[in-house]
C-alpha cells in the first residue's frame, strides 16, 4: 500500500500539479534557484494560499518527492477521512497539533524527528495563510525548530502572486504569474542568537525585490 500511495503521489504531481503550476499559473524565477539537493533541509516561505505548498513541491525534482513533507495543522487537514488520506499520502503532510491543543506531543519534536530521518520539510513561519498578499509577523516556531536542529539548512523562499490566484476563503482560481525569489540557506549554527532577525530581514529583502503590484 505504501508503494501504491507513493506512485499515486508521484503521478499526481507529475501529471496534474506540475503542469498547472508551470503552464496555467507560470513560474518566474527572480534569481537563480537555490534549493536543497537532498534532506535534511527546511524550506521556509511566506503563506498566502493553498497553492504555496503545491508550488514549493513543484520546485523540487520528482526523485526526492518521497522525502518532502509540508508541515501542516492536524485539526485542519485531518478533519475527515478522505481529506486525511489525501493530505497524508498524496500531499504527504507532517500533521502537527497546534500549540495549546494537546500538550502531550511537542510539534517541534515531531519536526525534528522527521529531519533526523532525512526529510525535507516545508514550513510556513507565519503560521496560517492570513490576508491575501500580505506578510504577517513570523512566529517563534521557526526559531525553536532551528535551535533544536542547529545544523539543518533553512532555505528562505518568497512567492508573490499566489494570494491573487487563489486567496484564502475563495474557491475560484484566477491565474496570475507566480514570482519566486530564492535566498542563500541559513542555519542556527551559523546565525546564532540573531537568527530570528536574520530570517525576518531576508524576507523583507526578498519582498522588496519584487516590484509587482499586490491587490489594489
Amino acid at each position: 500500500m505504501k508503494y501504491i500511495n507513493l506512485a499515486l503521489r508521484c503521478l499526481f504531481f507529475a501529471v496534474i500539479i506540475k503542469p498547472i503550476v508551470k503552464i496555467v499559473i507560470g513560474l518566474r524565477y527572480q534569481n537563480t534557484p537555490i534549493l536543497p539537493k537532498d534532506g535534511p533541509a527546511i524550506l521556509i516561505a511566506n503563506h498566502n494560499s493553498h497553492l504555496d505548498t503545491m508550488v514549493l513541491i513543484s520546485l523540487l525534482p520528482l526523485n526526492i518527492l518521497h522525502k518532502v513533507q509540508p508541515v501542516a495543522a492536524a485539526d485542519y487537514f485531518l478533519k475527515n477521512k478522505f481529506l486525511a488520506w489525501f493530505a497524508l499520502n498524496i500531499i504527504g503532510i507532517l500533521p502537527i497539533e497546534r500549540q495549546g491543543k494537546d500538550k502531550s506531543v511537542n510539534p517541534i519534536e515531531q519536526c525534528a524527528k522527521a529531519l533526523d530521518s532525512g526529510k525535507i520539510l516545508i514550513f510556513f513561519p507565519e503560521g496560517s495563510r492570513g490576508e491575501p498578499e500580505k506578510m504577517t509577523d513570523l512566529k517563534y516556531g521557526v526559531v525553536k525548530l532551528a535551535e533544536r536542529c542547529p545544523k539543518v539548512p533553512l532555505y528562505p523562499i518568497y512567492m508573490h502572486g499566489l494570494g491573487k490566484t487563489l486567496p484564502k476563503g475563495d474557491a475560484l482560481f484566477v491565474p496570475f504569474f507566480c514570482d519566486v525569489v530564492f535566498s542563500e540557506p541559513l542555519s542556527y549554527e551559523a546565525q546564532g542568537d540573531g537568527f530570528y532577525e536574520t530570517v525576518k530581514a531576508r524576507f523583507v529583502g526578498m519582498q522588496e525585490s519584487v516590484k509587482l503590484p499586490k491587490w489594489d
Partner: peptide, 19 residues
C-alpha cells in the same frame, strides 16, 4: 493577458471579472 494582469494593479473584488 496573464502577464498584463500580473503587472498592472487589479482589485481583489474584481477576481470574478478577471476570470
Amino acid at each position: 493577458l496573464k502577464e498584463y494582469f500580473s503587472m498592472t494593479p487589479t482589485r481583489l473584488v474584481d477576481r470574478k471579472v478577471l476570470f
